[in-house]
């Protein structure tokens, strides 16, 4: 069963081409991640699906309803959470929830078992003004408000941006339980590590859908050797490696430098000796399995060249 169907959708603003002929299908009850850098077109796509803007060309369907024509019906079955916290700051947690419930023609009590999971965590603060909540609590309140009418499709635009690591983890936990209830979730994120938590991910860049796949498949598509290197002076090492190889083949990953070998097989020993000779006596090198982040950088590199 298909929940979201996007067919050759393009969106052109006055100057920029935000979406360029995008097609994607999301299955029912799936967590689909839209991954891409800022300005890739994630928000534009989500706003089209949320019936906030119209595509310049192409068509989009949600639960069999056309996003342009049947917007009234769609609005009853989707929950949308924009990237920016957009609830009433001067209303309390409880009042916000009640208000959005009433706008959807329902009550908090009616769907309480669905929101309970999340709302229970912020209920102790229900008298507090929404504007005075912490970032993580704001997200939970926003999600509660988006869920209050038991939507069939949940569209979340960068829900974990600006949220601490613990809250992010909790948030993804919640998404998993919502999925079990049969809710289709379309979520965008700039964090690569969250991609692995999705059922499928779409990599979007420059308004184009680069790749749509299971996170594990995306890793399998990485065919090169990958090394993690570290020395006492990573900056100098980075510079040195960039001069020796294609500059796109090296990336800094926290404490390590990842080196992608696109050429013939490379032995660690040879590489190590070479670097020691070049003034990196304490170099440590290991061959590693690529993470999803390596794959995305590799995919993005393919387009920017």
């Amino acid at each position: 069963m298909k929940s979201i169907i996007v067919k050759n959708v393009s969106k052109k603003y006055k100057q920029a081409q935000a979406l360029d002929n995008i097609s994607v299908v999301v299955e029912k009850g799936e967590i689909f991640g839209l991954i891409g850098p800022d300005g890739a077109g994630k928000t534009s796509l989500m706003r089209i699906l949320s019936t906030l803007i119209l595509p310049t060309s192409g068509e989009a369907y949600l639960e069999g309803l056309n996003c342009a024509r049947d917007y009234k019906k769609i609005r009853k079955i989707i929950g949308y959470m924009p990237g920016k916290f957009s609830l009433y700051h001067d209303l309390s947690v409880e009042e916000n929830l009640n208000f959005f419930a009433s706008v959807f023609g329902t009550t908090v009590r009616e769907n309480y078992d669905l929101v309970k999971l999340i709302y229970a965590q912020i209920e102790p603060f229900k008298k507090r003004r929404a504007g005075k909540l912490s970032g993580g609590m704001k997200q939970k309140l926003a999600l509660s408000c988006a869920l209050i009418h038991y939507p069939k499709v949940l569209i979340l635009d960068e829900p974990t941006t600006g949220v601490d690591a613990v809250s992010r983890k909790e948030f993804w936990q919640i998404l998993k339980t919502l999925k079990e209830r049969g809710i289709t979730i379309l979520v965008s994120t700039p964090y690569m590590d969250e991609a692995e938590l999705c059922d499928r991910v779409g990599l979007i860049q420059g308004g184009k859908m680069m790749s749509v796949n299971l996170p594990s498949e995306i890793i399998k598509e990485f065919h090169h050797e990958l090394f993690a290197l570290t020395s006492e002076n990573n900056y100098r090492l980075m510079k040195h490696l960039k001069e020796r190889t294609n500059p796109h083949d090296v990336q800094i990953f926290g404490q390590n430098i990842h080196l992608i070998n696109r050429k013939a097989k490379l032995s660690i020993e040879v590489l190590k000796q070479d670097l020691i000779n070049n003034g990196f006596p304490n170099i440590s090198i290991s061959k590693i399995q690529p993470g999803i982040e390596d794959c995305f950088i590799e995919l993005m590199r393919g387009t920017s060249d």
């Binding site: 906030l52 957009s86 706008v103 959807f104």
Partner: peptide, 13 residues
């Protein structure tokens, strides 16, 4: 400014 109008626009209101 706050963005609540957008939140209301995706409701059946």
């Amino acid at each position: 400014e706050i963005g609540t109008i957008e939140q209301l626009n995706v409701t059946p209101l």
